[in-house]
Design a binder for these strands. Sequence first.
DNA 1: TTCTTGACTTGGATCCTGTCCATCGTAGGA
DNA 2: TCCTACGATGGACAGGATCCAAGTCAAGAA
Lengths: 136, 136
Amino acid sequence: MSDLLARLRERGWRMTSQRRVVAEVLDGDHVHLTADEVHARAAQRLPEISRATVYNTLGELVSLGEVMEVSTDGRARRYDPNAHHPHQHLVCSGCGTIRDVHPTGSPLADLPAEERFGFTLSGVEVTYRGLCPACA
Amino acid sequence: MSDLLARLRERGWRMTSQRRVVAEVLDGDHVHLTADEVHARAAQRLPEISRATVYNTLGELVSLGEVMEVSTDGRARRYDPNAHHPHQHLVCSGCGTIRDVHPTGSPLADLPAEERFGFTLSGVEVTYRGLCPACA
DNA sequence: TTCTTGACTTGGATCCTGTCCATCGTAGGA
DNA sequence: TCCTACGATGGACAGGATCCAAGTCAAGAA
């Protein structure tokens, strides 16, 4: 996933130090950070970066399809850099941590036409809920 | 679902005019209102009702299992009075409206043990995303 | 290299959702 | 009818996210 910056440049993204830092923070590990956590990590390398810029950049990465937005608890949205490999989420109802899971079983049943109410479907999200070992 | 009030009374719920109005608003139709929308509708009948009361009452209805909390977009949570019949949600990415759907296909594959990371599972949520006819 | 310009960043105000708390009111049993 | 514990009130508060006017700068043009 370290070619994220290259892909962005290819698409004509104007590369600023702020955007680079945000992209690199997300690129680092596959945890699911909140916007504020991204801002905190980015600020370690670029202390003047503003929250608005982090929000803007995250929004752009989402609309470019490079990052997934995950809102699991009605609190802060989280950002998942693992957007190119379909997967699902396992969320702890206690502490809110998220794990990516890749069920090997039968694929999801598609929604039958008579249940679509005229919607044009774009995707399905599956969220497993439970308690992590620490919270149980 | 019009026996909601009866069920609540049975459970020893202290019945106040505020709680009655909130329950009746939810009981009305199977749309998925935000807390603020519930408050607005309740205030049409009981103008002095406060937001805190609506939040309290909704929270109690959720913990009684009479209403489901749905958070699909990281914005306002929505409340689904259709808590007694398992179903899934179809969400418009444009306007945020939610429809209940009842896929008839194969049930969801359960999460295999090696993918649970020690979590004790409590449930699965499935959310279909797309654009409604009006937003498409 | 320097210039130019429109896209990007800043930070503070503002909005929205939701919670908290001290005080007041009242449902329902005695 | 009276009591009292439970519920309602509303205003303060907190966190997440967005908006905006002003300043800055990346990158193409000359």
